[in-house]
Design a protein around this nucleic acid. Structure first.
Length: 512
RNA sequence: GGGCCGUUAGCUCAGUUUGGUAGAGCAGCUGACUCUUAAUCAGCGGGUCACAGGUUCGAUCCCUGUACGGCCUACCA
């Protein structure tokens, strides 16, 4: 969109469009009449949806008797002209309502001093679909029973120079819907609902955490070491310092620093960035909730996770069942709990409890026809067995516990289970939704884990966790024992809204 | 990364089956109409048929390539 613009600020290429030309003429005519077409403050008496809920059930006669005056502002989304009567519909952020304009009510309203040629009836001709208007009048019902405002006074609040998408089919083209989300929002009511649901979910999350005494905080998005998760970061450069820095791939390590600082319960809902593939479950930037509870553990994190999922579903769906893709997800029952190694054995036949010999694991993966990298590490091989064979079977909410240590460098080791850590992930509909640890607060063990990761990195695993000396320095000052939890907010919203793609729950998803 | 499909008016879509440079509805414009709601009726304007090559007397249509997108798949915690 870098074509040159003319002095009117409208793309030169579009000057040829009749429609644009006509709308600009209407704009100019408002200006010629001395009317500011860009509006200003407008005091609404009601939100549209409130009118429907408060008065929608009243009879025509009851409304006449009430003689209720209302004023509201919104976008004109439909217009039906009938000579000396005009019906229209306005849309505000809560819904839409019908307007009734009549010559008899408006022709006497001179809008410009000393110009009796111009009145609010004549000016209706200058309106186009998409314009913002403010109206006031009485609430009534038409003979077909539709709640309607009999307009006594109206004004233009903003002019739309471009037309809305087609009124019946709306905007269908998915590329246009994602790229021009504002149009999608105007014409597709169900899209508005999805994003309202998204906000409900984050609200529920905040309410729950706040009520448990957690403090919401903000931590840096620019990191010198991209840690706290196993993923490829976006790299950028700080000019003044002349150093490369990374966009964060998780919130974990700064939130832990805050616990070291003495804030015992903290959480952040923040955008994180991973430089990896995009598909219906992945967007390069997405929203993560991370919460840390000093003196908590895996059990308290499970309870928190269940509460967040259950209440999010209830808030959005009005019940604990959600339809997602081909599944009926039940967030009402106690979530299942399964052991990682059991699941791997159940679906692959491979026992990862005993001696984890890399070559044996490699052969086992090959025998199972998994597409493994020749230089895959033990962690990657185990992970692949789980991800490809076990994970797709986890449909109803299931906590998977006791993760292998190789893929969990920030979690405390399991008691009496060498090679495993105190960690769970929650899977729903075959997708990872949450990830939690009893956090590793032993700085000596943490250094050893980072060192192990460094070896994997040297062995070709470019996603292995880097050694973070600054974090180790912090940890050496003492972090309370804690439970920590991460929840992918976008995926949670997908589950409770039934969204097909992550792009349907992100206002402006990544597009080429 | 791979496969399949798509790109025609501002939007939603036909169509060129068999090559002769295109249609509808909505939106816009003109007119009629005071209870319509996908209003209706009469008329008008609007197109680099994604882009670039090729074949051909002639390409929007056939072929090749490119761009962008969708779905699936793979990769990626």
């Amino acid at each position: 969109m870098s074509e040159q613009t003319n002095i009117d600020g409208i793309n030169e290429h579009d000057r040829l469009s009749d429609e644009l030309e006509s709308r600009k003429n209407n704009l100019q005519r408002f200006i010629d009449f001395g009317i500011d077409p860009w509006g200003g403050r407008f005091q609404s008496s009601h939100a549209i949806n409130d009118l429907h809920t408060e008065y929608g059930e009243l009879t025509k006669e009851a409304l006449e008797e009430k003689n209720l005056n209302v004023s509201l502002a919104g976008r004109l989304i439909a217009i039906r002209k009938h000579g000396k009567a005009i019906f229209g519909n306005v849309l505000d952020s809560t819904g839409s309502i019908q307007l009734f304009f009549s010559n008899s009510a408006l022709a006497g309203n001179n809008v410009v001093e000393g110009n009796s040629e111009t009145n609010q009836w004549v000016l209706l001709d200058l309106l186009n679909l998409g314009d913002w208007i403010g109206v006031s009048g009485t609430l009534m019902k038409t003979k077909t029973g539709e709640l309607t405002i009999r307009v006594a006074d109206w004004k233009i609040l903003s002019k739309a120079l471009r037309p809305l998408p087609e009124k019946y089919h709306g905007l269908q083209d998915k590329e246009l819907r994602y790229r021009y989300r504002y149009l999608d929002l105007i014409v597709n009511p169900e899209v508005r609902q999805v994003f309202k649901a998204r906000t409900e979910v984050t609200k529920v999350v905040r309410e729950i955490l706040d009520s448990h005494g957690f403090m919401e905080v903000e931590t840096p998005a620019l990191h010198q070491v991209a840690g706290g998760a196993i993923a490829r970061p976006f790299v950028t450069h700080h000019n003044a310092l002349d150093i490369d820095i990374f966009l964060r791939i998780s919130l974990e390590l700064y939130l832990k620093r805050l616990m070291i600082g003495g804030f015992e319960r903290v959480y952040e809902i923040g955008r994180i960035f991973r430089n990896e593939g995009m598909d219906r479950d992945h967007n390069p930037e997405f929203t993560m909730l991370e919460a840390y509870e000093a003196f908590g553990n895996l059990q308290t994190m499970m309870e928190l996770t269940e509460e967040i999922c259950r209440k999010s579903c209830e808030k959005v769906r009005g019940g604990t069942i959600s339809a997602f893709r081909e599944y009926e997800l039940d967030f009402g029952s106690k979530f299942a709990e399964k052991d990682y190694a059991d699941l791997v054995e159940e679906y692959s036949g491979v026992d990862i409890r005993g001696d984890r010999n890399r070559d044996n694991l490699f052969k086992a993966c090959k025998n199972l026809k998994l597409d493994v990298e020749d230089n895959a590490t033990i962690g990657q091989l185990i992970d692949q067995l789980f991800d490809e064979l076990a994970q797709p079977n986890l449909i109803q909410p299931t906590f998977v516990t006791n993760y292998p240590i190789e893929i969990s460098p920030l979690a405390r080791q399991a008691v009496g289970k060498p090679g495993f850590v105190q960690r769970f992930e929650l899977f729903v509909a075959g997708h990872e939704i949450a990830n939690a640890f009893t956090e590793l607060n032993d700085p000596v063990d943490q250094r050893a884990r980072f060192t192990e990761q460094a070896k994997m990195r040297a062995a070709g695993d470019d996603e292995a966790h880097p050694v973070d000396e600054d974090f180790l320095y912090a940890l050496e000052h003492g972090m309370p024992p804690a439970g920590g939890l991460g929840i992918g907010i976008d995926r949670l919203v997908m589950l409770v809204t039934g969204a097909h793609s992550i792009r349907d729950v992100i206002f402006f998803p990544m597009m080429r």
